[in-house]
Amino acid sequence: MLQKSFNVLVCVLAVALLLPVSAKADFPERDITLVVPWSAGGGTDTLARTLVKNAKKYFGVNVNVVNRVGGTGVIGMNSVAKAKPDGYTVGVITFNLSTYRLLGQSDLSYRDFSLIALLNRSQACLSVQSKSEFKTLKEMVDYAKKNPGVVTVGHSGPAGAWHLAAAAIAQKHNLKFTFVPFDGAAPTRTALVGGHISVAATGMDEVLQFYQTKQVRILAANSPTRHPSFPDVPTMAEAGFPTENPIFDWRGLGAPKDTPPEIMKVLREGFKKAAEDPDYIALMDKLGLPRVYLDHQEFEGFLAGMEKSLEPTLEMVGLLKK
């Protein structure tokens, strides 16, 4: 009897010891969880769900999206950073990750992740109502220089990508705007079209429809190159006001820090293929979200540069926590 239970015990122990080894060999054996730190139905969520729609083709298993929402993204991203590094929990990481440490919200940063890839990098733009007296960026800047604080610039939330992108422009060209924060892009846009603010700083994709219906005029795109969906909109440099290292909004993928390299390889290859899926490409283009693909090393370089340009901007708007 005792002998029998001992045998069973040995078998169980042997299996238990073998399991991690075999898991590494044939990763993935079961479904992977993709944590989205923002709520269901939003832009990041839509991107994630479309990305993994055909995941079975690329991983052999499904990738299931779980929304873990709260604390302006800290909770979801932190749960990925602290998850078991076995490759079965990965997460979407977004712009806010670049600001937590600088704002004193959390110690979490990109250093707590094994990066997979950067998938989207959106530029800001400055737009005005089509009835506005400002026909070009130069006219707006000239007016703002003569009348400091009179031009109201709406943006989609304090310390968000668009607020900081606009603040960086103001700092660089020595302008004084009155910033009006809104709760998201939609109300910012409505306030612009309704004539309640003079300028809106938003993501370029977010004003696509209003640009097509000619309800807004976009003064400049805050990036080194023109946006393919907006061929006639000049860049900041073309409009006469070059801005180095513009602040971008970004979305990418990361896994817990100590995930074994062979598993990271499977994840990186699988998600690279998923990012080339025609359904995903079609949706991203439809939304006007610029697709990029930076591998983990380029992604790391991008994030390091991002923190460098964010620090002085946050200091200027008085949000930097030292």
Partner: peptide, 29 residues
């Protein structure tokens, strides 16, 4: 206008977008 009235319609808007129907002034036209 592409402005969701509450959380539920925000998700509904996301669903429309996935189905290639971007809500907003262009949809009417």
């Amino acid at each position: 206008l592409g402005i969701p009235g509450d959380a539920a319609t925000a998700v509904l808007m996301g669903a429309l977008t996935i189905h290639n129907l971007q809500p907003g002034p262009m949809l009417f036209k």
